[in-house]
Each structure stands twice: as structure tokens, then as C-alpha cells.
Amino acid sequence: MPHLLLIFIAAVFLLAGFVKGVIGLGLPTVSMGLLAVAMAPAHALAIVIVPAILTNIWQTFAGPYFLAIVKRLWPLLLGLVVGIWLNADMMTGPYARYGTVLIGVLLVIYAIIGLRRVSITVRPRDEKWIGGIIGLVTGVISAATGVQVVPSMPFMQALGMKKDELIQALGVFFTAATLAQALNLSAAGILDESVAVPGVIALAASFTGMATGQAIRTRLEPEAFRHWFLIAMILLGIYLAVVASYEIHFA
């Protein structure tokens, strides 16, 4: 892998880790969006997998709610894994070239939802069947793009969890997603020794960025940072969708 690309990967994960350190999420979303500028989504996800799994496992068990979360969200998690399995060939099959366009569109949708602060409520009696559908849809989308925030994020925010419980629930959800994605990539022969060096670089940069973001979080205005971060995601999403669509059309 060219040295310039390795430097680019380090910079991407340093920024993605920093965002996660400041606002508590965004590492896979930011890294997939930026890496898609330079490589196919499948190869980008292969590099994202290890840092995402390790950071999410830490988040999964950093709290007392694990068993309660699994009991409450098992239809969401099951639907997620099934959706990823059903769409396993999307990143490596004949439609893989559309993945970057989808990533761009999803980044725009994710950012608009965040900026508009869409607020919905899901009644407890409806959580399980709605969660199963949301998980399935998210899984299908995730298998094609590596992005797992739409439509799962609005749904989980609508469950009325306490802040610490929601953070741990997101860790459980993203851990299930990245492990299922890792199995898909391994079966496709993409998750192999060729991603070892960029994976180690990504991991080190991610934790460095997270530590930096957490250290200066008290000096920043998190809401202002989040606002401009989401605007940047819209611009990046538009860029990816337009450029990828142009390349597909004139390929």
C-alpha cells in the first residue's frame, strides 16, 4: 500500500477518533465517508472493522445495562444480523460500484436528521416488532455501505433510554453490526493479511484521536462542534454521491 495512502488512512482515523472523543459517536461513519474518497467501500470497511470492533466492545461492556439491553433489543439485533447476511454480496458483487453513492446519500440523511433534531417516540408495546424491521433495514443498508446509523439511530433515540444506557446500547448494536460485517468480508476474502498494516495504523490513530477529543472536550462547545460536524457530513455526502455517480455514468 502506498505510503501516501497510509498517511491518509492515519489522518482519517485521527479525525474520526477525535469526533468520537468529543461527541461520543461517529468513528465508523466519518471514516467510511472519508475513506470512500480514495477506495471502494468494501476495502474501506475492511480497514474500519478492527478499530470499530475494539472501540465498540469497550463501549458495550462499559456499564451495568448489558443484559437488560440485549433482552430489550434482541429483535433489533437479530434483524440487523439477518439483514447483513441477506445482503452479504452487495459490497463485492456487480452492484458494488453503487456503494459510494449510497454512502454519500446516507451521510446527507444522517446529518439532516441530526441537524433537525427529529424527535419521535416508540411505545414500549411496539418496540419489538418495530425494532425487528428497523434492524433488518439497517442490516441491508449496512451490508451495502458499512454505515449503520440509518434508520437505527433515530429509532434507538426514540426509546427513551437514559444517556448512559443509550451509549451502552449503541455499543452493543454497533458491535453486533461490525462482527457480522467482519464475517461477510472474511468470507469474501477481503478481510485478510493485506489489511493488517493499515488496520494497525487505523487502530492507533483512532485511540489517539479519541484521547485527544476527550481531553479537550471540556474546552469545546459540544453542540457547536456537533453542528459544524453534521454540516461537514452533508458536504462530504454530496461530494461522494455526485463524483461516484459521474464515474458510474461515464465508466
Rank of each mutant, 00 (worst) to 15 (best):
M90V: 14
E165T: 10
T175P: 05
S31E: 03
F225K: 12
T178C: 05
A205S: 11
P151A: 07
V118G: 01
V172D: 00
V242C: 00
F61Q: 09
A38F: 12
L14Y: 01
V101I: 11
I216P: 04
F61C: 07
L45F: 12
A68Q: 15
I69A: 08
L86N: 04
L159N: 07
W74E: 07
A38N: 04
M90H: 13
G237V: 00
Q157D: 08
A251M: 13
H227L: 11
V50G: 03
E127Y: 00
F61E: 09
L67K: 15
G21T: 09
I141N: 09
I130Q: 07
A143Y: 09
G114D: 02
P154Y: 07
P222L: 11
L236V: 07
H249V: 14
T218P: 01
H3G: 14
A40H: 14
L35I: 07
L115M: 13
G160Q: 10
V30L: 05
L73G: 09
K162G: 14
R125W: 10
T218Q: 10
V48A: 11
A176P: 02
V48L: 04
G63T: 05
K71V: 04
L159S: 04
G139P: 04
A10H: 06
A44S: 13
V22R: 07
A187F: 13
E223S: 13
I113H: 13
A46Y: 11
V150Y: 03
A224F: 06
M233C: 13
F8L: 12
V197L: 15
P198L: 00
L54D: 01
M39I: 12
K71W: 06
I69P: 02
W129V: 11
A187D: 10
L236M: 12
W85V: 13
M32Y: 06
G209S: 08
R72W: 05
Q148S: 14
I234E: 05
S152V: 04
A88R: 15
V150W: 10
V50A: 11
L6W: 03
A96M: 08
L235S: 10
V140M: 15
A68H: 12
T208P: 09
A224G: 00
A204W: 10
A144Q: 01
G146H: 02
L6G: 02
F229H: 12
A211G: 08
L236T: 08
I53R: 09
V22Q: 07
V108D: 04
I7Q: 01
G83H: 03
L179V: 15
A177Q: 01
T145G: 06
T145V: 07
I190A: 06
G26Y: 12
I201H: 08
A46C: 10
A96Q: 13
L14V: 03
A177S: 14
T175N: 05
P154T: 05
T29R: 06
G24N: 05
L34N: 03
L6H: 08
A241N: 00
M156H: 07
L179E: 06
G26P: 10
I130L: 14
A36G: 12
L159A: 00
A158Q: 12
Q157H: 14
G213D: 09
R226T: 01
G199Q: 09
